[in-house]
Amino acid sequence: MDEMQESIKNYVVKEYVEDDTELTFDSPLISGGIVDSFSMVSLKRFLENKYNISIPDDKATPEAFDSVNKICALVREYVK
């Protein structure tokens, strides 16, 4: 577990989880119905602001955002 995983997980829980669903780093976010595809935009903006990166729209796919670990992998591609 690293700081990025924890930080992104905390954001997802605060932003999208409205009951007591337990979230792991591999929980399916989009395909599991936790994050709706409309709400991905705020997640993308959060990541861009926090890590000072720019994620191209064609890389911000539902698949790439489907778990905390997948999001971390995407972010690491753009962090200098």
Partner: peptide, 21 residues
């Protein structure tokens, strides 16, 4: 236009989104 959402009737969350965008 870009689309984002806020939690139902949650004004604090709406304000966060207005700041974000």
């Amino acid at each position: 236009a870009m689309h984002d959402t806020f939690k139902h009737s949650d004004m604090e969350h709406l304000e966060e989104k207005l700041q974000l965008h």
